[in-house]
């Protein structure tokens, strides 16, 4: 079993186990990682599960779809490696992945 590191905006780290097949959003919610709202429950329709992927992990997590980019454009904290965590499926290949949370969800 591998793990994922969520880093809150204030620097607090949360290292949690990977649950195969679940999305990063669900894993964060299940482990009570603060800073993700997930208002639409994972439908890529609210933008409140924004995470910033560590640049070393961008190819492993894949690229955002057009739909996802449109939702990401709605937050002022968007960066080049921003993703919606409900659109990233966890698997062993993500063992060790690091994602940062924005200051606010929008």
């Amino acid at each position: 079993m591998g793990n994922i590191t969520f880093i809150e905006h204030d620097g607090t780290e949360h290292i949690v186990d990977i649950a195969e097949g679940k999305t990063l959003m669900q894993i964060a919610m299940d482990n009570l990682v603060p800073g993700i709202d997930a208002d639409c429950g994972g439908s890529c329709a609210c933008g409140t599960c924004h995470v910033i992927v560590d640049s070393a992990w961008v190819s492993a997590t894949g690229i955002a779809s057009d739909e996802e980019l449109m939702m990401l454009d709605m937050t002022p904290e968007k960066t080049d490696t921003s993703r919606l965590s409900c659109q990233i499926k966890a698997s062993q290949s993500l063992d060790g992945v690091v994602v940062r949370l924005p200051e606010f969800q929008m």
Binding site: S43, A45, G47
Partner: peptide, 20 residues
């Protein structure tokens, strides 16, 4: 539980800009 999952602000590209 999950009180935030309501529809009042809409969803998608037009999701309420003033929700916060």
């Amino acid at each position: 539980k999950n009180a935030r999952n309501h529809l009042s602000f809409g969803f998608g590209v037009h999701r309420c800009m003033g929700n916060r």
